[in-house]
Design a protein around this nucleic acid. Structure first.
Lengths: 206, 206
DNA sequence: TGTACATCAGTGAACGCGCGTTCACTGATGTAC
DNA sequence: TGTACATCAGTGAACGCGCGTTCACTGATGTAC
């Protein structure tokens, strides 16, 4: 059903293994993987094309065979980010406890942000908001939320409720990420998300 | 009562006027003003200390008399940002229509974000979250929201409701800023904020 | 099966650039006497 | 009131750095005959 592989395993792992030949074989993916890894360790400002090439074990200009410029690389990373987020949300929705779909999806959303802070910030920066690939990836991600909202909301209110749900969970993720809101102890994170979502959800779940 | 001046007028305007003497007189404020202006036109990545000095009409290293390094300047800008936001929220709260305090403060919050996108992003980035001046400025800002929440919420739920309110309006501001949620026409912005806040506010207002 | 050749995906060196920051210095200001 | 001097707040030149990107080139691969 879902053919998407997570970036930390599966087909991606191969691309980081030592290469024996002059040709890399999968440099595009290796660059994305390297960029993803570097964003896990630092922020966007510290990510340079040269460093990505270095980490992929390749000369500084080799990435230009696969990306028009630095922006194109970042755009591709962001698109992957949305794919990952969409997968995480869909998985949470599928495995949700009865009557807890919103809460479990919200928890997954916040966890994604905390697990990939720099990627998350990049996804919601204005730098690549107008790229078509990113826009479509963002839209499919939003659709996962939308489907759940539509299942339990009168048609006339779907727009507002979708925005409200998304805004709440997105804002919460951002505020926690930035240290403006602090769950007391990591075990309390899920409870905090649950409480906030319940406090803002006036519509029922079936 | 409130002695804070907005950055675009009042005492700040003076600091950008042509200077006649070797000594600037108010270079610290002039730097902050220049940085603020540059952030209004571009993003954080395009803001350099040298450019700030240039705009302030001063040599590249003059700012070092007033800021230890570039980070210190950014930190000061962020602190000012929180001051401005706090002022905007307090003003909105004071002048709110009866029973609409949450809505009007939310609208003010979103407007601040849209009026100062780069500053807003910088305020909620992790770069200066641990600076004491910033932390205290952020705390006083949050207190403006907290006071309003406390006025209408049972004590046991204040924490959760405060987080929920803040998260919702902050998330909404962020999503609009990033183009993920688009009010249809600028006149519709306030209505969108109002609808979302009403949809997520289950507690009453007196 | 062997060979010539086009194409693809790398290399290494170089470019100009703007940056943050430091240095020795200088003009202006204020204060003690 | 005048002068010597310490202090403050600027200047201009220079530093090393890593960056994005381009260039001519080369090793590997695949395909036509």
């Amino acid at each position: 059903m879902c053919t998407l592989h997570t970036l930390d395993q599966g087909v991606w792992a191969v691309s980081t293994s030592a290469r024996s030949s002059y040709h890399h074989g999968d440099l595009r993916n290796a660059c994305l993987h390297a960029a993803w890894g570097m964003l896990a360790e630092g922020d966007v400002a510290s990510l340079s094309l040269r460093a990505v090439a270095r980490r992929a074990g390749v000369s500084a200009n080799a990435p230009y065979r696969h990306f028009a410029d630095k922006d194109a690389l970042l755009t591709a990373v962001v698109a992957r980010g949305y794919d990952e987020l969409r997968l995480a949300l869909a998985t949470a929705d599928e495995g949700a406890r009865p009557g807890e779909h919103h809460v479990d999806m919200g928890i997954a959303y916040v966890h994604f942000a905390l697990d990939h802070p720099a990627v998350f910030r990049l996804m919601f920066s204005n730098s690549c908001r107008s790229d078509p690939e990113v826009q479509s990836a963002a839209l499919s991600t939003a659709m996962v939320l939308a489907r759940r909202v539509m299942a339990v909301t009168p048609a006339t209110e779907v727009d507002t409720v979708l925005m409200a749900s998304w805004a709440t969970v997105h804002g919460l993720a951002t505020l926690i990420l930035d240290g403006r809101v602090a769950p007391r102890g990591p075990a309390k994170l899920d409870g905090l998300v649950r409480d906030v979502i319940r406090a803002t959800t006036s519509f029922g779940e079936t």
